[in-house]
């Protein structure tokens, strides 16, 4: 059991651009706000439209949109794989329990929403999406949360992930050096304490740069 554990590799951090795939199609050019609204409409339609034919039609429409975004089929299939497996399992279960019509409706509905969301994610740069989010959250300044603070928090979090991953690696090595790599406590307590300490010094650095004024 422990041998299998050792073979796990630390997941690579794919950087601030995330799952975006660059391109120049109409979907790439469409603003992030419009695409988010479109995604919400698809989600709503899946809930409202009843029956297997409507569900299949929606899935077909979203598939056409995905094809027009010029995404690499292998990447799309890879991000769809988990939901395809879920849809398959749930579809079989519902076929057995409630018949083919419900099975197709539920399975197609799941794949439709996830595929639409994948298309939005793959055609929109994360920073543009986060900017749009910042603009959408701008009214929060009335409850004491200025948009600049939101943007700063996002950037600070993105900066902290690779640093904390490195800390987790150091903690794991330290635990291993003392023969404690099987103890969740020896791994998690130092990781959590260092996280707080890091946040404290970062807070001090922000204050020193006048960002709390």
């Amino acid at each position: 059991m422990s041998r299998r554990q050792d073979r796990h590799q630390r997941p690579a951090w794919s950087g601030p651009l995330g799952l975006y795939a660059s391109g120049t199609t109409w979907l790439h050019r469409l603003g992030p706000g419009a695409k988010s609204v479109g995604l919400a409409v698809v989600g709503l339609l899946v809930l409202v439209v009843r029956g297997p034919w409507g569900a299949v039609l929606l899935l077909a429409a979203v598939t056409v949109a995905a094809a027009s975004a010029g995404l690499r089929r292998r990447n799309v299939l890879r991000s769809l794989l988990p939901i395809l497996v879920t849809a398959g399992v749930v579809g079989l279960y519902q076929w057995w329990q409630r018949g083919p019509a419900i099975a197709v409706e539920v399975a197609a509905g799941l794949v439709t929403v996830v595929l639409a969301a994948c298309v939005v994610t793959a055609t929109t740069r994360s920073d543009h999406l986060l900017d749009a989010l910042g603009r959408a959250l701008a009214p929060l300044r009335h409850v004491g949360l200025p948009p600049r603070t939101v943007a700063l928090s996002v950037a600070l979090m993105i900066r902290s992930v690779p640093a904390l991953l490195a800390t987790a690696g150091q903690v794991r090595d330290a635990a291993r050096a003392r023969g404690l790599e099987r103890s969740p406590r020896a791994l998690l307590v130092p990781a959590a304490v260092r996280t707080v300490a890091r946040a404290r010094s970062t807070g001090e650095a922000l204050a020193a740069r006048g960002l709390g004024d």
Binding site: P16, L152, A155, R159, E204, A205, A208, R209
Partner: peptide, 29 residues
Amino acid sequence: RRQVGFVFTDPDAQLVMPTAVEDIGLSLH
């Protein structure tokens, strides 16, 4: 704080933005 700049021992905690140009941009805000 506008007149006094502060440099810490550990730059890792002082640099708060994902890329170099963004971090300096933050100081200039």
